[in-house]
C-alpha cells in the first residue's frame, strides 16, 4: 500500500465511534453534579473536618453543647420577671447558689434575693405590666417570708456585728425602695399587699434588733427611740419600729 493510499484510507478509522447511549449518559453525568467552586471546596473540607471531630469527640461535644445551652438559658433567665417563661430557671439558679453558700452567708444572700424581688416589682410597676403585678407581689412576699424564717432560725447570728450591720444596711435600702415602689403602685392593688408582705420580715427583724440594742449601753436619746420602737412593736407597727431602731445609731 502506498503512503498516499494509506493516508486516504486512514479516514476509515472515523467509523470508530463511541456508543451513542454512553455519550449521552456521560454528558448527563457530567452536568448532573456541578464541579466544586473553591468556596464550596473549603466548605466541604470544613464539613468533613467537623464530621470527623463530631464523630471522634461526640461525647465531649454533647457535654460541652449541653453546658453551653444551659448556661445561655440561665444567663437569659436573669433578666426575666415574675410570670415570664424563664422565671423558674432564674429562681432555680438562685436556690442552687443558696445551697452551696456557707450558712453564715445565706442570710445576706436571702436579703439580696428579696431586694431583687423588690426591684422586679418596681420594674413591673414602672412598665405598667398589670398581668405580672400579682406574681411579682407574690414573689416578693415569699422572699420576705424566707428571710424572716432565716432570721428566726439564725437569731444568734444576727447578733454578730458584721451580719447585723449588713442586715440593717440592706433593710434600710429595702425600706427606701419599698416606699418608691409603693408610690409607683399608688393606683394599683399592690400597696396593701406590699405592706402585708413585709410584716413577718419586719416583725422578726425589729424584735431581734430591739433585743440586740437592749443589751448595749445607750444614751438618753437612744433610749427614748428604743422606747418608741418598743411601743410600735406592741402596736404591731413593725415597719415604724424598724425605722426607729435603725436610726438609733445616728442619735
Amino acid at each position: 500500500m502506498e503512503t498516499q493510499e494509506f493516508l486516504a484510507k486512514i479516514k476509515v478509522l472515523r467509523n470508530i465511534k463511541p456508543r451513542q447511549e454512553w455519550v449521552s449518559s456521560l454528558k448527563r453525568e457530567l452536568f448532573a453534579e456541578k464541579p466544586n467552586s473553591s468556596f464550596s471546596q473549603v466548605l466541604e473540607v470544613l464539613k468533613s473536618g467537623a464530621e470527623f471531630l463530631l464523630f471522634r469527640y461526640r461525647g465531649a461535644f454533647i457535654t460541652t453543647l449541653t453546658i453551653m445551652i444551659f448556661s445561655a438559658v440561665v444567663a437569659l433567665a436573669q433578666n426575666s420577671l415574675p410570670g415570664d417563661f424563664l422565671y423558674p430557671v432564674k429562681q432555680l439558679s438562685e436556690k442552687t447558689v443558696l445551697l452551696v453558700l456557707p450558712s453564715k452567708e445565706k442570710t445576706k444572700a436571702e436579703l439580696e434575693i428579696a431586694q431583687k424581688r423588690l426591684e422586679e416589682l418596681e420594674t413591673v410597676a414602672k412598665n405598667n405590666q398589670v398581668q405580672k403585678l400579682a406574681p411579682a407581689v407574690k414573689e416578693y412576699k415569699q422572699a420576705l417570708s424566707s428571710v424572716a424564717r432565716k432570721l428566726a432560725q439564725d437569731s444568734t447570728k444576727v447578733k454578730e456585728r458584721d451580719l447585723a450591720r449588713t442586715v440593717v444596711e440592706k433593710t434600710e435600702k429595702l425600706l427606701e425602695k419599698e416606699n418608691e415602689v409603693a408610690q409607683t403602685l399608688a393606683t394599683e392593688i399592690g400597696v396593701k399587699d406590699l405592706a402585708n408582705a413585709a410584716i413577718p420580715y419586719y416583725e422578726s427583724l425589729a424584735k431581734e434588733l430591739l433585743e440586740d440594742l437592749k443589751a448595749v449601753t445607750l444614751n438618753d436619746a437612744q433610749k427614748a427611740v428604743l422606747e418608741e420602737a418598743q411601743q410600735a412593736i406592741d402596736k404591731g407597727d413593725y415597719q415604724t419600729a424598724l425605722e426607729k431602731l435603725l436610726s438609733v445609731n445616728s442619735k
Partner: peptide, 22 residues
C-alpha cells in the same frame, strides 16, 4: 467526544478503557 474517544481507543484498544479515560 467522538474525536477524543477515537484517539483514546486507537491508543488503548479497549472500549472499556477508552470509556474510562474519556
Amino acid at each position: 467526544i467522538e474525536k477524543i474517544y477515537r484517539f483514546v481507543f486507537l491508543k488503548t484498544n479497549s472500549v472499556e478503557t477508552a470509556q474510562d479515560i474519556v
